[in-house]
Amino acid sequence: MPAGARCEFAVRVEPIVDEVRKLTIETYPDGAPKRELFTGALINRVTNLETGATSTADASGTALVVYRTDGSMTWYVTGPVLLGFRENAGTLPKGLWIVGGRFRVEFSPTYDKTITMLHGTTHNVCTDVD
């Protein structure tokens, strides 16, 4: 991602462990997924492309994802998961956030995100590689 998109510097996020499994629970009549369950180990390497600093981010949560026909979706999560936020595009400031605990994420059709925490924590991974 270019500088300013999520962090103030250019950053790359790449999985170093990806054992995520997906189960489609329900589909729409056209076969598109309506509800899916995701779970499994997901560890990402986050790299500051300007300095070379790296950090790992554990995003090995479990989520039930409900897709709507308008392009919006809701995630019901037991975290942690890694979520990127653009400037003024959700309930957290711009950044790459590890969100842990139990929470719901509402995605608009343009991917603005609204997090409703039941309990948990947030941490901006940009600060780990700054």
Results as ranks from 00 to 15, higher is better:
E87R: 12
L118D: 06
R35Q: 14
K22T: 13
L49T: 07
A59Y: 10
S60E: 06
Y111R: 11
T51F: 12
G61K: 05
F107Q: 14
V13N: 03
K113V: 10
L49S: 02
M1D: 05
R104G: 02
R21Y: 11
T24K: 14
E36F: 03
T56E: 06
V77W: 02
D112A: 13
T56S: 08
S72A: 10
H119W: 15
R45Y: 06
Y67F: 08
N44K: 14
G71R: 11
T121C: 06
D130R: 13
C126T: 05
K94N: 04
V46I: 11
E106N: 13
L96Q: 05
W75L: 15
R104P: 02
T78P: 11
T56M: 07
A59M: 10
V81P: 00
V13Y: 01
E36V: 15
G101Q: 06
P29N: 05
M1E: 09
L64R: 08
P2L: 12
V105C: 04
L83P: 00
M1C: 02
K22L: 13
P33H: 09
D30I: 15
R6N: 06
F9C: 02
R35C: 08
E36P: 01
P80H: 07
E106F: 06
K22D: 03
P109H: 14
R45P: 07
